[in-house]
Design a protein around this nucleic acid. Structure first.
Lengths: 201, 201
DNA sequence: CCCGCCAGGCTAACGACGTTAGCTGTGTCA
DNA sequence: TGACACAGCTAACGTCGTTAGCCTGGCGGG
């Protein structure tokens, strides 16, 4: 279907444990709770010991960003590849999946998408691969970026409680999806090749 | 035209000075530089002295968020009110103004829009007032929210350097603007009333 | 004129943060 | 048996926001 997911960076087993613990901490208690001391406590050790396995907090965050991007990429690629009829359901299906994935892990989503991306420290190719489905659904790299931007805007504003109290967000998503669907020209599964990659999630 | 901008909270002259200094610090050196000690240094005093005028760092941030929202609201209201022919330029004009205003003060924009909004501490009505233009341009509160979400997504991803290197963002904005413009039904200036407020910026 | 008040500065300090330096115990392998 | 490296530890540094408590200069009222 598409080139497979790029391999993540190698990690020692203990480092993987630490990152797993960090993910739990982040998802359950939010970004402010992701602290070297809290993380160490969760692992039954002291904060400085973490440095025996990872170079610092930044590395923990980068690993979590990679996880978030990879999982979102998996979800979106799955949606696109099951979209046998390329016609018009693609945009709506992609948007729905994006929203669901983000809302399922709000703190991970926020970490992965808010603020500058440490691009050079990410597994090479991961970012492009995660953005591929947008291009496949939109059929055009500009519309793909616009679509992804809309999706991210919707999700992040929803996560941050920015919409007024009684907002019917389902309808808002539909309003946006319809606007975009009318313009999209999905790539038929199987025929895609050398076109420029659109973006990333 | 529209009900005027809600009045900001009252502040002592010294508090206003502090907030002005904070804004300079934020805009020129970024959020990480906005520190009580750095801010005090800029004012020629020590950090604890700031607490004689403001209850804490959070209050400084809230004041800056209000400033950002108010200025964005001014910009967007100005665009809408000059849009004499209600027809189709409204959406594109609003989007262009939103982008320009955000890029002119990136750090202020980020502070004002990223993360949870301290809604209860904001000047009452400000948020709704700032969101009004979206409703006026879209003619429908769902489309208004979708439009604003698209704009915010585009801006924040641009500010965070999330688009691939050679992206032609002008074209991406145009792609999105066209998708939305085709659906929008702008409210004619002068006839708007009791419809539910859409959102906020 | 003098006294008292108080606005607005100050220093010292607390607990949290990420991080570094340097010590120690323990298991493995020559 | 000895060497060594791995993986833990404590102590500490400099940063952060914030609090407690002191001091001083100017102003208003008797």
């Amino acid at each position: 279907m598409t080139s497979g997911r790029p391999a993540p960076q190698e990690r020692s087993p203990r480092a993987a444990q630490i990152i797993a613990a960090a993910r739990g901490l982040l998802e359950q208690e939010g970004r402010a709770a992701l602290t070297m001391r809290r993380l160490a406590l969760l692992l039954g050790i002291r904060a400085p010991s973490i440095y025996k396995h990872l170079p610092g907090k930044h590395a923990v965050e980068v690993a979590l960003i990679e996880e978030g991007m990879a999982e979102m990429g998996d979800t979106l690629h799955r949606v696109i590849s099951h979209q046998r009829a390329p016609a018009d359901g693609a945009v709506a299906a992609l948007l729905a999946a994006y929203r669901a994935e983000a809302l399922a892990h709000p703190n991970l989503y926020r970490l992965a998408t808010a603020g500058q991306l440490p691009r050079s420290e990410l597994a090479p190719g991961l970012e492009d691969w995660a953005g591929e489905p947008w291009f496949l659904a939109a059929g055009d790299s500009y519309l793909a970026q616009a679509l992804w931007s809309f999706a991210h805007g919707m999700v992040i504003l929803e996560l941050d409680g920015r919409y007024p109290a009684g907002s019917d967000l389902d309808r808002t998503w539909r309003a946006g999806a319809e606007s975009f669907a009318r313009t999209a020209r999905p790539t038929v599964a199987g025929e895609r090749d050398g076109a420029a990659e659109p973006d990333h999630a």
